[in-house]
Nucleic acid binder design. Structure first.
Length: 279
DNA sequence: GACCAGGTGTCCG
DNA sequence: CGGACACCTGGT
């Protein structure tokens, strides 16, 4: 991938493995959407961004400054990683994964904010995607800071303190029984001595175990946070979809260590493809 | 109205 | 330790 600053934003070209369409439909993030043909918008880490992607997905326009692109989006979209080399780990003998990586070409693992991931995937439990998206939107509208960029108003994802300050409104966003998990997480993370960022520097098993200390966070959610929020590409979340795939195509056993330390990335292709063909 | 959805805590053997 | 069961809420 190469990029150059233009008057309308940062122009990306010679793009390899970048598909906003796949990324926003892969269930890893809930604050991006397609706002027009080939046009996407979202909020992450306090910034609003619009992306125009060419139909062949070889180029894209990021409507932001070069500084913002280099300081935030380059890392967020994981552009330093060579996905092609990871995809090559899949051999012809695995026909499911061969189809999955072909189908999901352009998927990437976004490097999201760990606190947002923690909340997002607590909400995701025993829930469906449209409702998850709605809850997060209401959560942001109720608690998040209002900002504006080029006349477009948007809400940031709320900080732990912003949730605590108006915790009596938690019942209004439709969290259901998960509201107590969110409040407990906010209280824990707002502690000066607690820093989720510390979990980047431990191995993925330790990271996942530490995350499971949060009330309402079990193995699946902890692995999602490790993978999507803390850079542990070998975290391998097993949800009902992955379970079904393993049962149906792998006779109940899948050796993810074969793809270490990228098994989490392989998992994303499995999940995306498996869910699509079942729909 | 019963049942389910990208799980988890709790209880019970 | 493994298996049942309840759990908010909004949708079939």
């Amino acid at each position: 991938m190469k990029y150059v600053e233009t008057k309308s934003g940062v122009h990306l070209y010679e793009l390899d493995n970048f598909s906003m369409e796949h990324i926003i439909n892969s269930g890893q993030c809930f604050r991006w959407s397609r706002i027009a043909t080939n046009t996407y918008a979202g909020v992450a880490k306090g910034h609003y961004l619009e992306i125009l992607q060419s139909p062949n997905e070889a180029t894209a326009l990021f409507k932001c400054s070069l500084k913002e692109f280099e300081n935030l989006w380059y890392d967020y979209f994981d552009f330093s990683r060579d996905y092609q080399s990871i995809v090559k780990l899949v051999t012809d003998s695995d026909s499911f994964l061969t189809s999955a990586v072909r189908f999901g070409s352009g998927l990437r693992i976004l490097k999201q904010d760990p606190w947002e991931c923690l909340v997002t995937f607590i909400i995701s439990q025993q829930n469906n995607i449209p409702r998850i998206t709605g809850i997060i939107e209401r959560l942001c509208n109720t608690f998040g800071e209002l900002k504006e960029k080029n006349g477009i108003k948007y809400r940031c994802f709320p900080t732990p303190q912003q949730i605590i300050d108006k915790y009596h409104l938690l019942g209004t966003v439709g969290l259901g029984y998960r509201d107590k998990y969110i409040l407990a997480a906010a209280i824990k993370v707002s502690d000066e001595l607690y820093d989720l960022e510390d979990l980047r520097r431990v191995d993925s098993v330790t990271c996942t175990n530490r995350l499971k200390e949060f009330y309402g966070v079990g193995d699946k959610v902890a692995n999602c946070i490790s993978l999507f929020g803390l850079g542990h590409t070998d975290a391998f979340p097993i949800d009902v979809w992955i379970r079904r795939i393993i049962d149906e195509y792998y006779n109940g056993e899948f050796d993810m260590t074969k793809y270490s330390p990228y098994s989490g990335i392989i998992q994303q292709y499995m999940f995306y493809y498996g869910r699509m063909i079942k729909q």
